[in-house]
Design a protein around this nucleic acid. Structure first.
Lengths: 132, 132
DNA sequence: GTTTCTGTTATACTTATTATATAACAGATA
DNA sequence: TATCTGTTATATAATAAGTATAACAGAAAC
């Protein structure tokens, strides 16, 4: 599996999993309907606990990014991803504001900040250009 | 004082303080040399503990956004803010990537995402247009 | 010089979060 | 029936966050 975990990081393991899975979907490395490893096997692969993986899966299921069947296991949402609703827009604005404020204080202009945002978005999407 | 704290939020109080102070500096509501309330008075104002405020001040001092004198108390860094060094750029990239990935999955285009970033930056800066 | 304010440091304690460890249950498949 | 799946339930340990007191030392004001 292509996932990597940093046990020394200050960001929780389940958050790292959530982030990487969303990035995988965004870049189309994970396509709708694609199967994901079982909570037990992924936990074993990464050398972490079953519940840590399950917590990440639960969050993504709750947000509508994953679907769960009884025996097939976990799959990437086949029937259309959730849109940019009010809750997400609020979360997005908070996140951007925090980053933009420090960037501004450190001398980055609005244009630089916006360009950086576009560049990171672009780079992220280009990871899945080989259609996997 | 213009600070507000949400005790019900999942983001730590000291982080909320750090964010709001950086936003205040970014928007020039707090200008270089401006005095900040003492850890005791601000804690009393917000109904929180002295150490929670002190933790926020320590972080901002460590990053070079604040200066501390013995009796004058805490002031906004008078001698030029730190620049966008490698550490910050890495932190910025991580933060943007996480937000950009979810935005992309939810259907936001690169242009929309970049525009949103610019808009939030702009709105943030406009808060201090009345020169305080 | 004493008082008073400042940041700072040191303990101690409570609470919440994160992560792990086992165990068991129920649906689905071979 | 045996095996794999997600799921749930406990329990425990480690860390982070927040609070509560107390005390120290520098600096300014009386």
């Amino acid at each position: 599996m292509w996932m990597e975990i940093d046990l020394q990081s200050d960001v929780p393991i389940y958050t790292q999993l959530v982030d990487q899975l969303i990035e995988g979907i965004a870049s189309a490395q994970l396509k709708p309907g694609d199967p994901l490893p079982s909570v037990r096997s992924l936990a074993a692969d990464l050398g972490i606990n079953l519940h840590t993986v399950n917590k990440a899966y639960q969050i993504l299921k709750q947000d509508g990014f994953l679907q769960v069947h009884r025996k097939q296991g976990v799959v990437v949402q086949p029937g259309g991803m959730p849109g940019a609703d009010a809750a997400f827009r609020a979360k997005l604005e908070r996140g951007i504001r925090s980053l933009a404020a420090e960037a501004a204080v450190r001398g980055m202009t609005e244009a630089e900040f916006a360009e950086r945002s576009a560049a990171v978005y672009r780079q992220l999407m280009s990871k899945g250009e080989d259609a996997k």
